[in-house]
Write a protein that binds this DNA or RNA. Sequence first.
DNA 1: CGGCATCCGCATGGATACTG
DNA 2: CAGTATCCATGCGGATGCCG
Lengths: 127, 127
Amino acid sequence: MVTKQLLKGLPEDADLRRADSLAREIFSDIANKWALLIIEALGERTLRFSELRNEVEGVSHKMLTQNLRMLERNGLVDRKVHPTVPPRVEYTLTEPGRALRTAVDVMCEWTHQHLGHIEGARGRFEG
Amino acid sequence: MVTKQLLKGLPEDADLRRADSLAREIFSDIANKWALLIIEALGERTLRFSELRNEVEGVSHKMLTQNLRMLERNGLVDRKVHPTVPPRVEYTLTEPGRALRTAVDVMCEWTHQHLGHIEGARGRFEG
DNA sequence: CGGCATCCGCATGGATACTG
DNA sequence: CAGTATCCATGCGGATGCCG
């Protein structure tokens, strides 16, 4: 069980407790719709703020900014500001960000592969 | 690009548009903290409601019920009611649920592997 | 263009209580 | 024990406006 501490949250000593609380915090940060969609949209590319806004269907200006700050703060994306006019800001996944992307890829793939099963399940569930 | 439609949302015909909208809906359902933690907690085991409540640190009665209903509706968990008194309700991941769990595992593993990097990034970000 | 602040409606989610 | 319903606070998230 890889994630014992993350899940059980009952570490015995102070260091473990700190690490686990940090892990929970990070997991809560990234386990949200917009963050995952942003990571997936970036992929291997470098995108500007406005390009990202187009790629991530339905995201608002505010949510995009907010999540990008969070991802930058956690070292998942790199933010490069070009001091031109008009301003040009580019976002790129860092190495850890790209590592996480493989997990997001799996989730997206899973979603597409199970569309049929889920539709069936919903029908059976009574909707 | 595995997830073109999920990400871009610009399908040309009606069927693709329907499938994509369904995919987005499902992705939004599962890309949330509690759903992912519940899936991870279940793993290969079968757990009762109250056991699950203990395993998933910090989840409220209401959130657990709500997310379990959602996961059941989408066919990710199987809900078995034993008509005893007191009642006994057991939850188990279905095959698709277990498939998704591998992705969640990767996310959890990623979190632990990058704790150090993230702490460093936060320091650099000024906090 | 990108970022930040403000306002504010509404859904989210906690607490509580009641049923089978 | 598990589920549902109700109440209620708060915080998420959209809209708008201004600034570098």
